[in-house]
Amino acid sequence: MGRGLRWLVVATVAWGMLLAGLTWWSVRHDPPTVKEQRTLSQAVPVVERAMGQLVAALDDDAWKLTESRVDRGCRLTPLSAGAVLTRGLEVPVAAGGERALLDRVAQRLPAGWRAGVATETGHPRLWADAGEFVVIDGRVVADGLVRFSAATGCRPADAEIAKLMPGYPVGPELTAALRALGQAPPSDAAQVSAAVCPAGGLARTVSVEAGRGPASLAALRPLGTVVLDRPGLYAYRSGPVVVLADTTGDRLGLTASTGCGD
């Protein structure tokens, strides 16, 4: 083989390795853009079903669905901008139990999602493909706290997603928790986040914020079966509902979550 031909082979191999490396980096770090230009509102049902699958994959863990987030300004083309819709699900666990939770959820997600857990920068992380360009991510965001998300990728923003998220009245479980902690139920409607369960029906989380949190959450103990007991966090099950009290911030946060098996 001549010297010129050898250099050509070496250059071709190097170029191929560079493209492979750039592709891997892009998949891990670049936000996806939906080539078929499916709109944000068209992606909402896929995201809702994906969140329902995540809820169904949990056991008796304490969990809460979080508010939808719409990030605008991603580029569909050099001349047009789009938006990304992200739904979240937070699961507090005992410190050290994060990897076990991620592994358990990955095993229970649909086989077609190709879910897996790998270690990145020293922490476990879950990846899955829910179809229709919706990506599932699960990661440790703090000791004892795992956050799952479903994101649409960059799409044309054809609707205000906030209009799909109406208020919801405070239910009896949250009312009982507020009263036990010496807090009055808020006068305005609570925030609701919902997801479509695999077998139909809805999983939902109803959230309220009250005043400054009490020094102790021990007053909640008579209200149900303990699910989680950590400093500043207490969760219990009352029938089909898991109530989570959070005083780790400046204000008392309460959520009541009803899962897919209830």
Rank of each mutant, 00 (worst) to 15 (best):
56 A>N: 10
54 L>F: 00
61 D>R: 12
46 V>E: 12
102 L>D: 00
140 V>S: 02
140 V>Q: 03
34 V>D: 15
152 T>I: 00
184 A>W: 07
238 S>M: 08
177 A>W: 00
93 V>H: 02
18 L>K: 01
206 V>Y: 00
229 D>E: 15
45 P>N: 07
257 S>G: 04
116 G>K: 11
23 T>L: 12
167 G>T: 12
51 M>G: 09
174 L>D: 06
121 T>C: 03
81 A>W: 11
42 Q>I: 01
50 A>Q: 12
244 L>T: 11
121 T>L: 11
19 L>D: 12
188 D>S: 15
110 P>D: 09
184 A>T: 15
146 V>F: 06
114 R>C: 06
135 V>I: 09
55 V>I: 08
124 P>L: 00
149 S>R: 11
163 K>S: 13
262 D>M: 10
43 A>I: 05
29 H>Q: 13
98 E>C: 00
216 S>P: 09
118 A>H: 11
23 T>D: 15
207 S>N: 10
201 G>R: 08
36 E>R: 14
38 R>K: 14
157 A>P: 05
231 P>M: 08
71 D>L: 15
82 G>I: 04
113 W>S: 01
133 F>G: 15
173 E>Q: 15
34 V>L: 09
204 R>W: 09
132 E>S: 15
72 R>Q: 15
67 E>D: 14
97 G>Y: 04
65 L>A: 09
124 P>T: 01
84 V>G: 03
119 T>A: 05
173 E>N: 07
145 L>E: 13
64 K>H: 12
242 V>F: 11
127 W>H: 14
187 S>G: 14
158 D>W: 10
31 P>A: 11
13 V>I: 15
245 A>K: 03
151 A>N: 10
223 L>A: 01
91 V>T: 09
220 L>K: 05
3 R>W: 12
142 A>Y: 07
214 P>A: 04
128 A>F: 06
19 L>G: 10
214 P>G: 06
261 G>L: 15
185 P>T: 03
216 S>M: 08
31 P>Q: 11
158 D>A: 05
254 L>F: 03
4 G>P: 09
137 D>Q: 09
155 R>D: 03
59 D>T: 07
156 P>W: 11
136 I>E: 01
122 G>I: 02
10 V>P: 12
186 P>V: 03
212 R>W: 11
111 A>M: 11
150 A>F: 02
38 R>S: 14
152 T>H: 08
199 A>E: 14
155 R>Q: 05
220 L>E: 03
180 A>F: 01
122 G>H: 04
87 R>V: 07
213 G>A: 13
219 A>C: 03
61 D>A: 13
47 V>G: 02
88 G>I: 03
119 T>D: 14
178 L>F: 04
235 A>I: 01
143 D>P: 12
108 R>W: 02
218 A>R: 13
73 G>A: 08
240 P>L: 10
228 L>P: 02
11 A>S: 13
21 G>I: 11
38 R>F: 06
88 G>S: 14
237 R>K: 10
166 P>A: 09
142 A>N: 10
108 R>F: 03
155 R>E: 00
72 R>P: 00
258 T>H: 13
2 G>K: 09
88 G>K: 07
236 Y>I: 03
86 T>A: 00
122 G>N: 07
75 R>M: 12
86 T>Y: 02
77 T>P: 01
68 S>Y: 14
18 L>D: 13
